Simulated scan of single mutants.
Amino acid sequence: MSRRRKIIVLCAAALLAYPGVTYVQALTYPGNAPWGVRTVDWLRDMGGGQVVNAVENWWYTRHQPPNTAPPPDSLPGTAPAGQQAVPGTHPGAVGVTGIPLPGEGVWVPGARLPDGAAADYTTFVRPDPQHAAVVAGVAWLNQSLVRTTLIAGTKEPRGAAGPEGAAVPGSLRRSLLATFNSGFKMRDCACGVYLDGVQGPSLREGAASAVVHVNGRVTVDQWGRDAALGPDVVAVRQNLDLVVDNGKPVTGLWQNPAGQWGSASNQFQYTWRSGLGVDRAGNLIYVAGDKLTLTTLAQALVQAGVVRGMELDIHAQMVSFNSYRPDLPGIPPQHLLPSMQGSPDRYLAADQRDFFAVTLAAAGQSARSR
């Protein structure tokens, strides 16, 4: 074989070996992430983002939900009679259209403080009039009683957190009330993050932003209009643009004209979606459900009382809200909706993605990012 041919063969072998090596690295990278998620992330990192987007659009836009009542086992549990109201601040009324199902729009109290006040409530709504089977779970967190922390994963937002730092730290576990997913990978949302005193990727003007303040409260803002960096801010997680503003869905969600809400046609996908917002009293509201389009996610946020809201992550393996009962240590954690995938203990082990942890303020835990 000529020297030229040997060089060509060696170069071809190197080119073929590179994808295999990087794929193995992706499959073995520290932090919890299912095989499918690792594979899709690897494809995107290898320049296959447009192909992944096209396949997702093809699949999720062709699997519309039925216009029938949801199966009873897909609905969260309801509160015993007389237990819906407890002392303390209560969530506002939930918007329900049509004839409600049992428990629909009825708030169920969660963890209690010694005086009996509930720190969190949950319920569900059906935000899609054309598809009655679609259910969105809602969690309401009383920000006078809780503190929220943004925790970095082993890979996102910057790949800076070691395995020990990518889970709920031991100091927070006795008072842990809830954990929930963050947003898109940083490269996919054209946005930034501020965490542990470091900004990077850079925060984007106009982006929807979950802002964690030094007192542990979270505001959901349009960056540069409603919020800016200052001594009161300990963490910022951006994701796309606001989907709810002034208590209404933002104009243009259905068209997504400039890709403000993800890749082209992403808004049409019937898939798991999650969102975060604040109500008029400043309390935190998380919403998630399967077979939601971007528009019906925004509608669910509005029904839940959100005045400013943002989309978080999407797809089944990414959407996760898990509630704990620090007041009743023997009660196992639960998903917001029974059909959520993965373990309710997901964020007690190191995870590749950043996430939020919510604790009872009464325990005196620090709200600073970790």
Score class of each variant (00 low, 15 high):
26 A>Q: 11
68 T>W: 03
268 F>R: 14
128 D>L: 08
4 R>S: 11
145 L>W: 00
232 D>Q: 13
122 T>K: 11
296 T>W: 12
119 A>F: 02
365 Q>K: 01
256 N>F: 05
338 P>I: 08
168 V>M: 06
257 P>L: 03
334 Q>H: 11
61 T>Y: 03
275 G>D: 11
128 D>E: 11
69 A>S: 14
116 G>L: 00
235 A>C: 00
19 P>D: 07
315 H>M: 12
203 L>S: 06
218 V>H: 01
134 V>F: 03
18 Y>S: 10
316 A>H: 14
344 P>F: 09
70 P>A: 03
71 P>V: 07
152 A>L: 00
292 L>C: 07
188 D>V: 10
174 R>Q: 14
113 L>H: 03
191 C>Q: 04
8 I>G: 12
143 Q>L: 05
316 A>P: 04
226 D>G: 12
253 L>K: 05
114 P>Q: 03
102 P>Q: 04
177 L>T: 15
125 V>I: 07
161 A>E: 09
276 L>H: 09
283 N>Q: 10
150 L>R: 09
253 L>Q: 09
109 P>D: 05
305 G>H: 09
266 N>V: 09
315 H>R: 12
87 P>Y: 01
157 P>Y: 13
80 P>A: 08
145 L>N: 02
244 V>Q: 00
308 R>T: 13
244 V>K: 01
362 A>S: 15
294 L>A: 11
335 H>D: 12
197 G>C: 05
285 I>N: 05
203 L>M: 02
